[in-house]
Design a binder for these strands. Structure first.
Lengths: 111, 111
DNA sequence: TTACATAGTATCCTTTTGTATACCATGGAT
DNA sequence: ATCCATGGTATACAAAAGGATACTATGTAA
């Protein structure tokens, strides 16, 4: 999905699918959830989401960054320090996650 | 994702992810979109979504059905007639799709 | 000079998801 | 008798997503 849309120059047939592509990765909503709480270092996110591998965390963050939802700030230090935060656009995802959260809760209760 | 959650007895760590599992399939939101418009026969959905293969349309509909979002009504006729409609739960997805639709539109405009 | 911490890459593999294509069952119309 | 339409299944395959594991670069501190 991502690949295809990107090759076609970010043209999506449907806005809902565009949203799905941005937040659809396995770890993205958890990442966004934690970033809504404030700026986090890479290592902090790893600690907050222990199940995610380093490779996955990196790739999900980079995709969010290239979609403009996340800002990546590299500090020229050793050992490295990289901070991730939500952009203005990224913050607008909060109501989206909220609605999905509420629907999901209702769904879980039923089953 | 689906498999795992189902084997664990539909226990989701996160409500947002539960929602993602329900509407996350490649064709589900389009299907739901059309069903929000009213009950549709299988062949109607095929015509409305020409890119989807029969197999995919069937499997996405069956997943939506087993999640309780879609109702499947089989009429004992030949040739067969099967109608799909949204359940009460399925209809509650409308506001979710709407928020995602709006966010997606805003996202597309920016890029 | 050696070890350490951080934030990564690289490689290989498995699982999941989706596609392509062919086939099937049925009862009524011709 | 046979052909048709509908709503599927079955099988094989391709691609995408994700996971496991090992490796790397670098300035600083001991």
């Amino acid at each position: 999905m991502r690949e295809k849309a990107e090759k076609q120059g970010n043209h999506y047939n449907c806005p809902v699918e565009a949203t799905m592509e941005v937040i659809g990765g396995k770890w993205k909503v958890i990442i966004i959830h934690h970033l809504l709480d404030g700026t986090k270092r890479f290592s902090e996110l790893r600690r907050l989401i222990p199940q995610v591998t380093q490779r996955m965390l990196t790739s999900q963050l980079r995709e969010l960054e290239s979609d403009g939802a996340v800002h990546r700030e590299v500090y020229p230090q050793v050992p490295p320090k990289v901070e991730y935060s939500l952009t203005k656009l990224g913050k607008t995802l909060e109501p989206v996650l909220l609605v999905m959260h509420d629907w999901g809760n209702n769904f879980i209760e039923r089953s």
